Amino acid sequence: ALYILDDTQAPAADDQEGELWIGGEGVAQGYFQRRDLSADRFHPDPFAGHGRMYRTGDLVRKRPDGKLDYLGRADFQVKIRGHRIELGEIETTLESTHGIRQAVVIAREDLPGDVRLVAYVTSAGPVDAVTIKTSLAEHLPEVMIPAHIVKLDSFPLTPNGKVDRKALPAPFAVAPAPGAPMVSDAPATAATDRPAVALEGNLEDAIAAVWARVLGVPQVSRSDNFFTLGGHSLLAVQAHREMKVALNSDRLAITDIFRFPVVSALAAHLGKSITTVPARVTNPSHVSAPAAAPSAPPAATGDAPADERMDAMARRRAMREAREKALG
């Protein structure tokens, strides 16, 4: 017997995606000496009332005529910020990009609570992450664009010759603990978005230091884009909070990160209203809380009502994503 079941293991309606389970007299009791794997794959068959059914991991859809359409593997589906992502679709799109030989995409949680898509590719030549992400954006929604693209000489393999996804290296070194220096070397070669451009001034230093820690990257240059480095709405909220402390100012609106996502552009914008910047900040968490406002009013930042509306919209969007993530 073939069963097409949804996430609650209830029968899926025709034309609805579900996971294929197999029941009947020929289904085994489980894997030999693999109780953990058997418990995941072999369940009592509630439809037959006896025996067991086997979870294949295949995603299918039943047509009205009874035939099944194969849609992919459930193993390669993940949830990112409340969205169900099919990793195979991203891999296929990557491999259609000029110069990419093979691609593997996984969801990583190198920093607690921060799940990101990371693409691993093999290529005969250099890999330009910005060009690849731009190409992907023409075919895939934003949530399916990998935060990082890592070039490898070859993929690690399991004994049976399949890609060992668990052995794929982290895209960057783990962000340092408070007070520790940034680690510049990484276990894998991350594709460079663009040649690094040296930071200019204390304001850019402070912004880059916060971004590096929040995004978990080893370094940030003045030409780097917050979202290209792996940022999203939830991380923007965190970066906004830490930058206000690091810059000792309340003049930064969360929407400034969306309007000016490049370090140099954000620094130029903030420089209009922030006249005093703390000396080189390498660890914003150790900076004191924002000081009282100066006696002379700072320069205006623009349309205050519009900024407030945009700020509220960004916060609501971030809260919605957080709620969706919590609900799974």
Rank of each mutant, 00 (worst) to 15 (best):
L157I: 12
V78A: 05
A289I: 14
A124R: 14
A300N: 08
Y70V: 11
D65Q: 02
L199T: 09
I149Q: 02
V287P: 06
A289Y: 12
E25K: 08
A267D: 05
H139P: 00
M313R: 11
Q77V: 12
H98N: 04
R34D: 13
P176H: 08
T134M: 08
Q16I: 10
A137V: 05
S233K: 05
A170D: 12
T158N: 09
K244H: 03
T56M: 04
I90R: 01
F76L: 14
P294N: 01
P46K: 01
H83A: 06
M53R: 07
M243C: 11
F260S: 11
N160G: 07
A190D: 04
A119Y: 03
T282F: 13
G302S: 07
A292Y: 12
D36N: 14
A196Y: 13
K272F: 00
D14E: 12
A299E: 07
F258P: 00
S123E: 02
A188K: 09
V104R: 13
L140G: 12
I4D: 02
A314Y: 00
Q29W: 00
R309E: 12
K325M: 09
A119V: 12
I145T: 14
R280Y: 06
Q102K: 15
P64L: 06
V121H: 03
A180T: 07
V237F: 03
G51L: 00
S123A: 15
L229H: 10
L215I: 08
F226H: 10
P126F: 00
R34K: 15
V115E: 10
K62Q: 14
G57V: 10
R317Q: 10
M310V: 00
A279N: 13
E321F: 15
H232V: 01
L252N: 03
F226E: 05
V210I: 08
E200Y: 02
V287E: 14
V143P: 04
T192E: 15
P171Y: 08
K162S: 09
I4Y: 05
D193L: 14
T8P: 01
P278Q: 06
P297D: 07
A236S: 13
P278N: 11
K272C: 00
R222N: 07
T189C: 03
F227R: 05
A322P: 01
S135A: 15
P178D: 12
I257T: 07
V115F: 07
F155P: 10
R165C: 01
G230H: 09
A291D: 13
Q16C: 13
G88F: 02
A48F: 00
G23R: 01
R116P: 09
D58P: 10
E25S: 12
M319Q: 15
P297I: 13
V127M: 03
D250T: 15
A253E: 05
E138H: 14
A103I: 04
D45Y: 04
D114M: 13
E17N: 04
S223N: 14
K244M: 14
G328S: 09
Y120C: 08
V127L: 04
R34W: 01
T56P: 08
G271F: 03
V263W: 06
A268Q: 14
T158C: 11
W211Q: 08
S154V: 05
R52F: 02
A208D: 06
Q219H: 14
V287C: 15
G51K: 02
P64H: 10
I257Q: 06
A180G: 04
L327M: 02
A239W: 02
I85C: 03
D250M: 13
G179I: 12
Y31E: 06
